[in-house]
Write a protein that binds this DNA or RNA. Sequence first.
RNA 1: GGGGGAAUUCCAGAGUGGUCAAAUGGACCAGACUGUAAAUCUGGCGGCUCAGCCUUCGCAGGUUCGAAUCCUGCUUCCCCCA
Length: 407
Amino acid sequence: MPQFPPVADQLALIRRGVEKIVPENELVPRLEQSYKTGTPLRIKYGIDPTGIDVHLGHTVPLRKIRQFQELGHQAVIIIGNYTALVGDPSGRDQTRARLTQAQVEENAKDYLKQVGKVVDLSRAEVVRNGDWFSSMSFLDILELCSKVTVAQLLTREDFAKRYAAEQAIFLHECLYPIMQAWDSVKIRADIELGGTEQLYSFMLARDLQREQGQPQQIGMMSPILVGLDGVRRMGKSLGNYIGINETPYDMMKKFMQIPDAVMRMYFELLTNRPLEEVNHLLAGHPKDAKIALAKDVIGEYHSATEATEAADRWQREISEKQTPEDIASASIARSELVNGALPAARLMVAAGLCATTSEARRTIAQGGACLGPNKDRIAAHDTQVTVETGLLLWAGKKRVVRIELAD
RNA sequence: GGGGGAAUUCCAGAGUGGUCAAAUGGACCAGACUGUAAAUCUGGCGGCUCAGCCUUCGCAGGUUCGAAUCCUGCUUCCCCCA
C-alpha cells in the first residue's frame, strides 16, 4: 500500500499558488480518504496540442501536477487530440481556428517532450481523448448533449459576452466543455487542474460524473500568470513570455525585466522556495530578489551552475555594461568599401543593425550609434568609418555586432 | 433575399478639396535618470543620393490647377431586417 505524507503536509504543498478550489470543503475529506485507504488520487490535466511552445505560464499547472506526483498521487495527462479539432472557446472573444489531425498528432509529440521537463512522464498516464470520442455514435453524442441546457452554457462568461455582443457562437464550440467534462468521466478524475477560466467545464464534469455514479472531481484553479509586461497573461502571441527551452542567459535577461510587482506571484507559482523566505527576499533590495527568482527558475530548467553563470554574466554585461561575450558577426563585402571606409549610415545598414538608411540616420542623429569597446559615439551619418574585421558597431545599448570583412 | 455602414501610415483612431507623410494615444526606437523594475523627461517613428525629392490613406478609373477627402465601378469586412 502506498504511503502518503500526512494530509496537513500535503495541503501545504497543494494549496500553494492555487487561486480557487471548488468545492473547497471536499478537498480535505478526499485527501484523508486517499491517505487512509492508500489510494492515490487521480489528477487530471488536459491540454489541446495546438502547437505550443511551452512557457512559464504553462508550467504553473504542470508544476502542480509534479507536486502531486511527489506526494504519491497519479497524474493523468489528457492530450486533447480530439478536442483540438474543435477549438477551446475558453476566454476567447473569437472563434478559434481548428487544426487538422496530422498537425495535432505532431504537436502532441512535441508538446509531451516539453512537458517531460516538468512532469515525471514515467509515472504519469498519458491518454488521448480521441480514444473514446472517435468511436462515439451520433446517438451517444445526443445522449451526452441531453445533459446540458443552453441556459447552462450561457452562464459561461465568455459565451455570455459573445452572445450579448451578438458575436458568433458556433455549435461545435458549445460541445467543447461537454467533451472536456466527459474526459473526466472516462479517466475517473479526482482532481482536475487548470486555469480559473475552466470553472464551467470543471463543474460540468462533476454533473456528468454524478450522472455516471462516480465520485465527483474537485477543481483546482491556478491564477493566470502575467507576462513580462506585468499586465497581460503570459502568451506567445503577446511576446511577453519566457520559454522553458530558452538559454539560461536569455531567461536571465527576461527575468530582470519583469516589473517588481509580479515577483511575489512568480515566486509562488514558479518556484518551491518557502514563502517565508520569499517574504524575506521581497523585503530586501528588489534587484537581489529578482536575481534569486531568476536563479530558482533557471536552475529548474537547466542547472544551478548555469543559473549562477547566467546571473554573473548579466551582472557584467548588462549591469556593468561590459562588452558582451557573444557578439554576432556581420559580414561586409570589401567591394562595398571606398578606400577601406563607409559613411556611418551605410555601415549601419550593411551591418544589419538598421533596416533602412533613414533609420540609421535617425539612430546616429540621436546618439545611438557607437564604435569599438569604448563605445565612441559616431557624430554624423556621413562620418567616414574605416571598416576592419573585428570592429565593434553598436546601435543603442543592446544591439552590437562585430564586423567581418569578406571578399 | 432586402436595407444600412465601414475600409487611413504597426495597432487603435482623427482627418470631408489645398496649410497632410497625415492630429492624438498605444506599441516600438534613441537619449537622460536607474536596480537595463516602475515612474518620469527629451527626441524619433514611409523611403531616398535628406534644408530637397519620391511613394503612401482597400483596388481601378474619373472630376479638378490641386483629392485621404468629390464621382463611378470593383473587392473585403461589419451591422440591421426577414
